[in-house]
């Protein structure tokens, strides 16, 4: 594990250095990324200009949900987002060369093209997180404070697993990137809003089938001291790590199975 992190940093570092050869372009891209991510915030503000509540949640609460999901999602995207290129590697036959190196293909593809511009997404989301915290009307107990970093970490872990799952899916369906994206990007988008706005049936699906409710919704209900619309017991507010672990096992199995089934391309 330590070794994997070390290799990750070394590889990402090499890519960063080569990106840094064009500093102007790097800064521009970082800013563009930051500005385009900030536009989402504008959309929320416009919505709240027309309604005081969204799915029963105030502006500060929606900002809280939006930014916690956003932080988890951006961190996962930054660290692992490029694994969605697996299908491309399979099609072009470049996965072969990746497999010839003594490092996990996951690490190699995840660090590919690692560029500081990816960090751009974190700036608006991080800012929104801080603003939401200052405006929330919450009685801050030590447990609530402790849940904050844990929920971002749990969400990050879930998104990691989803990203690997959607990549592994491309072993079976080489041009399955779009379908995979609907889980990762779609999941990132869904969880930015209070899940109550989607109705009970969707909420059930997001709890039991595709457990996106555990990214931030369930722990946020605890932090914001809200009842669960599905009436699930308190245990569920803290179940994110378990869900993440289960998803990770699933992702690992899918990834390994995919590698084993891999047929390479002609040449």
């Amino acid at each position: 594990m330590v070794e994997a992190v070390r290799t990750y940093v070394l590889l990402a570092g090499t890519w960063m250095r080569s990106a840094a050869q064009y500093p102007a372009s790097m800064v521009m891209l970082l800013l563009t990324q930051a500005v385009s991510s900030s536009l989402d915030l504008v959309a929320i503000l416009i919505m709240f200009a027309h309604t005081p509540r969204l799915g029963g949640f105030s502006l500060a609460e929606v900002m809280f949900l939006y930014s916690t999901s956003g932080l988890s999602f951006s961190l996962a995207d930054i660290t692992l987002g490029t694994v969605e290129r697996l299908g491309e590697h399979i099609r072009k036959g470049t996965l072969d060369t990746v497999l010839l190196r003594p490092v996990s293909p996951l690490l190699q593809i995840a660090t590919e093209d690692f560029n500081p511009r990816r960090l751009g997404k974190l700036i608006p989301t991080g800012t929104m997180f801080v603003v939401a915290l200052t405006r929330l009307d919450v009685h801050w107990t030590p447990v609530r404070v402790a849940v904050l970093p844990l929920m971002v970490a749990g969400g990050l872990w879930i998104f990691w697993a989803l990203w690997v799952l959607s990549a592994a899916w491309q072993f079976a369906v080489v041009d399955g990137k779009q379908a995979g994206n609907s889980i990762t990007y779609g999941g990132g988008f869904l969880t930015q809003y209070p899940l109550s706005i989607y109705g009970r049936d969707v909420l059930r699906g997001l709890t039991w089938v595709l457990p996106l409710a555990f990214v931030n919704w369930e722990p946020a209900l605890y932090v914001l001291d809200r009842p669960d619309p599905l009436g699930l017991p308190v245990f569920f507010r803290f179940a994110s790590p378990l869900v993440a672990a289960a998803l990770s096992v699933l992702a690992a199995l899918a990834w390994r199975g995919g590698l084993r089934r891999y047929q390479s391309t002609g040449s």
Partner: peptide
Amino acid sequence: QRTTLWWDLPLRDSLTLVRHLY
């Protein structure tokens, strides 16, 4: 028919990456 080097990196950097990998 296909390179194991990184397309966009100078050869020297590619070889440094290989050094890290191995």
